[in-house]
Amino acid sequence: MRLTVLGGCGAWPTALEACSGYLVEHEGFSLLVDPGYATFPRLLRYGDADTVDAVLVSHGHPDHCADLHPLLRARALSDAPPAPLPVHAPHGALDAVLALDRPGMLAGAYRRHDFTPGDRFEIGPFTVSTRLLPHFVPNAGLRIATPDAVLAYTGDTGPSDEIARLAEGADVFLSEATYVHQVPEADARYLLTARLAGRYATRAGVARLLLTHLWPGTDPATAHAAAAELFAGPVAVAAPDLVLGVGTAAPQRGPRHPA
């Protein structure tokens, strides 16, 4: 399994970084996870819109799903539209994004597969197990597995014992880390810190921790250091064009097909 980071910025994109977006590939199948703000242009560094085989969304906040819209437009309005794109998301999570165009305009561009967090299903070569994790809206933690590798991803979440269960023994634990040491009191039930991500990584016995969804302007080195206080294994911060071989290879940088 190969993981490519398209973006890992929380809340809104910056001039240099897109919001959450991850390309997960195995056996020639490309799964786009959380196409947040500004991820579609990053995706085009790796292939055309029609090279995506399926989309999987953790929750309905726009920094995790807004760029599904340009992706579907690019497919629907091309000279030779590809087959409808399977799109998997919690019930109702994509209603706002899919309503941006006139009714019916994108209807032939996608096939909707709504699920309830807690469900387990197959997408191409991947087995996806989901868990309900606490956030401002229903959020599905995602465990994406092949026979040889496991990627666990929190989406956005607050503290929960379910996080360690989701990530148990994962090769890569992709964890939200909006703040470094402390979440503001009003949001403490719904978001994590880099330090907490390190604690959950240790509890789950993961092989590698990858921090994501940092608040814009956060120093990645500070987040890295906070996580490493509680997790002794390899720690990295999700950055554009970071490529990881999940379960097999060390991190590599750089797009495979530069624009």
Rank of each mutant, 00 (worst) to 15 (best):
T146R: 01
T146Q: 09
T146E: 07
T146L: 06
T146G: 02
D148A: 13
A149M: 08
V150D: 00
L151Y: 07
Y153H: 11
Y153I: 06
T154P: 07
T154D: 08
G155P: 14
G155I: 08
D156Q: 13
T157S: 15
T157G: 06
P159N: 08
S160T: 12
S160M: 12
S160L: 02
D161A: 12
E162R: 07
I163W: 01
I163A: 10
A164C: 08
R165I: 13
L166W: 02
L166T: 05
L166Q: 04
E168N: 12
G169M: 05
A170F: 09
A170G: 10
A170N: 09
D171Y: 09
V172Y: 03
V172I: 07
L174D: 05
S175R: 02
S175G: 00
E176A: 08
E176S: 12
A177F: 02
A177Q: 06
A177N: 03
T178V: 11
Y179E: 12
Y179C: 10
Y179L: 06
V180R: 04
V180L: 11
V180Y: 02
H181T: 05
H181G: 13
Q182S: 09
Q182F: 03
Q182T: 14
V183E: 10
P184R: 04
E185R: 03
A186E: 08
D187M: 12
D187R: 09
A188S: 14
R189L: 13
R189Q: 15
Y190N: 11
Y190D: 11
L192R: 02
L192Y: 00
L192S: 00
L192A: 01
T193V: 02
T193E: 04
T193D: 01
R195M: 14
L196V: 13
A197S: 15
A197K: 03
A197C: 10
G198E: 13
G198P: 14
G198M: 10
R199A: 02
A201P: 07
T202F: 00
T202M: 01
T202A: 09
R203H: 10
A204T: 10
G205Y: 15
G205W: 15
V206S: 08
V206K: 04
A207M: 05
R208S: 09
R208K: 09
R208I: 05
L209M: 14
L210E: 11
L210F: 04
L211K: 00
L211Q: 02
L211S: 00
T212L: 06
H213D: 15
H213T: 03
L214Q: 02
W215M: 07
W215Q: 00
P216R: 06
P216G: 05
G217R: 12
T218P: 02
P220F: 10
A223F: 05
A223C: 01
A223N: 02
H224E: 15
A225S: 13
A227G: 15
A227Q: 12
E229C: 13
L230T: 12
L230Q: 11
L230V: 03
F231S: 09
F231M: 03
F231H: 06
A232F: 01
A232I: 02
G233R: 03
G233I: 04
P234T: 09
P234Q: 04
P234R: 14
A236Y: 02
A238Y: 11
A239R: 14
A239F: 04
P240Q: 03
P240A: 05
D241C: 08
